[in-house]
Design a protein around this nucleic acid. Sequence first.
DNA 1: GAGAAATTTGACACATCTGTCAAATTTTTT
DNA 2: AAAAAATTTGACAGATGTGTCAAATTTCTC
Lengths: 211, 211
Amino acid sequence: MESNNSVPQSRIQQRNVNIILSAAMDVIAEFGFHGTTIGKVAKKSGISRTNIHYYYPTRNDLIMAAIVRVNEDWYDAFRLVDANGDPGEELMKYVTAKLKSSFAHPRFSQVFISEIMAGAPLTKNYIKNTMRRVFRDACQVLQKWIDEGKIIDVAPEHIFFMIWAMTQYYADHETAVKLLLDKRSLGDDVYDAALETISAMIVKGLIRAEH
Amino acid sequence: MESNNSVPQSRIQQRNVNIILSAAMDVIAEFGFHGTTIGKVAKKSGISRTNIHYYYPTRNDLIMAAIVRVNEDWYDAFRLVDANGDPGEELMKYVTAKLKSSFAHPRFSQVFISEIMAGAPLTKNYIKNTMRRVFRDACQVLQKWIDEGKIIDVAPEHIFFMIWAMTQYYADHETAVKLLLDKRSLGDDVYDAALETISAMIVKGLIRAEH
DNA sequence: GAGAAATTTGACACATCTGTCAAATTTTTT
DNA sequence: AAAAAATTTGACAGATGTGTCAAATTTCTC
């Protein structure tokens, strides 16, 4: 998946790749997969279009590199769930991390869904293989809790889907949320209300009371 | 918002507008707001590009018309919630309708989110005015239930957000869900598992037990 | 079925985007 | 500071997309 196989990068290369990818994520988040052009990334990053071609020969190379970054982030979040911890606490830890990320870095979620909605043309194989493996491992953890009677017996896959749905909603539907709540930006007050609603659904909805 | 002010349409006009808008929704759902071109709609609908211009002078006019259709559908769903009914039943009725729509007509949800993610360039005013008013009325219904102690006391706005998040997830993230579950299409089995998970969260998470 | 109105088409001008290339410039190495 | 390597630029060809227009065709009206 990664194109540069641990080739040591020069100072300039490192700096420019960072600038370019950050700009690319902004553009993808704003204009979507198909609306992203090298010209827009050039303008946003301050690096000339032809120079971007120097680092990323084709448009797809550029978009792919940006998406890889997002996927790595998504992937890392799974490590947060500890099978031996308390289900309620562990799930809330995970939900909180996801929700925080949605409010602080909505771009990540937006880039991810842009590619998914386009049919995952670039990362289909990565999702089918790498991601699915990690996903199944995480589902095993939930299944263990179900077997132990600690959480209710519903398909673990869908528990994750719903957690992602609820937490990523505020990033992906940022515009609609702002317009409906009549807010210029999504601040702490919105975050708090969101977390309260989600935690009620997760904790009261999924966790079995001890007895 | 609507461009044709109740002008009676000819037989051909009616037929072609339907064909064009249906194709446009397919294309927007697949390629997103910025990836939609009149050429693609022409190919999909079998109506020549220039002829589409005859019905919709500009690209924006066409996209706008498609989005208006989706918004009307979204708008209509609110009528399902009856303030005098039982909260658990009413919410499940609404959730079930939304989820069914997500599985049967994912395009609607996909077109909607495409425009939202692009920053709602075409429907910002419609959302700010018409939609917001309807949204607030619906929130009033939830607030009444909260005041009556029938559902838990969290911000009604976010309850709706979470319902939309959970039900629309299966349409908007269709590709990811399919890949992670290793399924060719989302059939009744997936629908059933999704509904079970969502209803657990809604009913057990939000509804107060009677006593 | 003739004339009027509505619909459909093909050719065109203009704009934007991609990717290539050789030349110019800057940075690093010796 | 000279030579080598890395980086940056501008000019270009080819592809795709938008919207306009007049002319051709089809459908409707009487």
